[in-house]
Nucleic acid binder design. Sequence first.
DNA 1: GCGACAG
DNA 2: ATCTTGTCGC
Length: 363
Amino acid sequence: MVAGLWICYWFPRLSIVYEIPDLYAIVLKSLKSIPQGKVTTYGEIGKALGDKISARAVGYIMATNRWPDIYPCYKVVGSDGNIGGYSLGTDLKKRKLRKEGIRIVSGHIENLEEIVVMSKDLKIPPVLESLQRLQQYLGEKVDLSNFYGEPRYVVSLDLGYINGPPDINIATACLFDLEENKVLSLAISVVPIFMPYIPTYLAFRELPAALLALEKILDVRYPDIIAVDGQGILHPRKFGIASHIGVITNIPSIGIAKSILVGKVIGDWKKYGELKYAPIDLRGEICGYVVSKGKHKIIVSPGHRTSVDGALKIALSLEWRNNENEPYVMRIPHIVSTHFRKYLRNLWRLIRDKQTDLTSFIS
DNA sequence: GCGACAG
DNA sequence: ATCTTGTCGC
Ligand SMILES: [Mg+2]
């Protein structure tokens, strides 16, 4: 009997989750239609998906292909003609390509333009275009006027990953009382996901697990605001994951990230107690701020029903502990997700390897 | 060739 | 984001 550890889960009620494509299946299945003697590139597949920025994610899907005999990922090479990597060895990739009559000189295909299958000829629907349109459509609903009053109850959201495939998300939603500075509730979700990380499409990777945990917390209490690990409107389409969660729940939200996706810090730092902050410009508009404490920094931007200044004001009010790299309220879901991930990983290793220690592990 | 790319 | 031990800095 093969060892197993199964986590049972259900989908969030919010319907966006059903629109998220299985990029692994789409890309892997498309490889079967590449004719003998032809190849394609990571970039062409990315273009066919609807955004060339996904080229590296395509590489990740190839690298983690568990069925190389069924899905011929050796037919995908670099756009400069370099044949690229192969988990079964680069030599085998060369041999498989040569067997189809493809000429390779020092790891390089000389006549790539003659044998490459272009994006329009790949059997791949432009799913990223649809997701981008969804971001633009929902982005028009973002409200940047500030909600009324001082926030007391906040839900902070963050995730950890177990690498697959399928990758698994562990999301933690933390209901936190800013007045008493204490945790009121935690909700943890474990969800397999079929979207790789693609810059500017992060939400579609993290939304299913994040919403599942968030919905459970909303059964306890609606918070004044949701603080999401990621960007709000500091996004090419002004619709990062914090805005996305804000709009589909219609709850005020802010994004708190550790680095910038787009935009530029404008000089002109100001002091606020132990903190310093400076505005971030996106296409001539101030869309967020960098807030720093010592060597650590966070990037804050409004998500929904919050103003840029309102988001800054909240960020400046959050408590940082010791020399930690982010405010305490954001650190909790991060730590909980990480611990839960390690717990699951250790439990799995135990089931797989050393049955006899199971009782002592659990106690 | 270099830089840029939330998690 | 994760992998992974000891090691460096405050
Ligand atoms: Mg995170």
